[in-house]
Amino acid sequence: MARYILQRVITMLVVAWVVVTLTFFMMKALPGGPFASEKKLPEAILKNIERRYKLDRPLMEQYFDYLKNVVKWDLGPSFKYEGRTVNDVINKGFSVSAKLGGLSILISLVLGVPIGVIGAMRHNGLLDRVTSGLAILTAAAPSFVIAGLLQYYLGFKLKWFPPATWGTTKHYVLPTIALCSFSLAWLIKLTRSSMLEVTNQDYVRTARAKGIPEFWVVYRHMIKNALVPVIASLAPLTAGILVGSFIIEFIFAIPGVGREFVVSITNRDYTVTLGMTVFYGFLLTGFTLVGDILTALVDPRVRLDKEG
């Protein structure tokens, strides 16, 4: 197990390195990239950028320099605002985003897994049909549409919850619903199909042939197996929440990192966009690692296959 974790950690470090490298060379290589159009920039910022990225130096030197800075957790200055850095943006908005995102992941898991399991057990039953229908609908509607409708009806018209900004517990409700709707739908679908797959496995039949009562067959033999792909999907789940947070934070005017990311895009604040890309890359790599370790805890085959 320890060896497996170590191996995963090393892999993730490689992934993190790929993220930084890919991002760096993308911004260097692309024709419309940030430094191709540095015309009307204020003097101070231009100096800042040149100092920071050593634009007069050879490419490889720039690259290693950038790498060094990232390792020191310095993600670079803003392209548009003097004296502002990517680190500032992250430090300011991260706790809000983490609360919103964490809550959404939690709700998706706590509701999605049981609903998926029950849906599979009562395959084509009422709950299964209703949730499957809702899941199809939420998965097909762009998140800004869902968020917009929630904000409009529950916020502005019915005034049940504050329609925007951040502060009290009530402020959490609408953005959290909007943010977790997609991942919840996705998780229900994943759990359900995973359960249905397990239903037809030979070992389930073996358990029944042993005379194990149905409840224990489901609880002990099916759910644990069905959860393996669900746990392994932690990283994509987080990625979905993360991308969703860009839009949700923007719509509900929540002062999180996701909103800053969108603002940096609309402002063409390239260096902030890039720095945040690296930041998000690291974040997700971390979640992938957690997902891998959790999977290994549930599924003995994983940890042994990789060790052996």
Partner: peptide
Amino acid sequence: TIPLTIYVI
């Protein structure tokens, strides 16, 4: 493992 949507953006 890397968040592809961010790279699309």
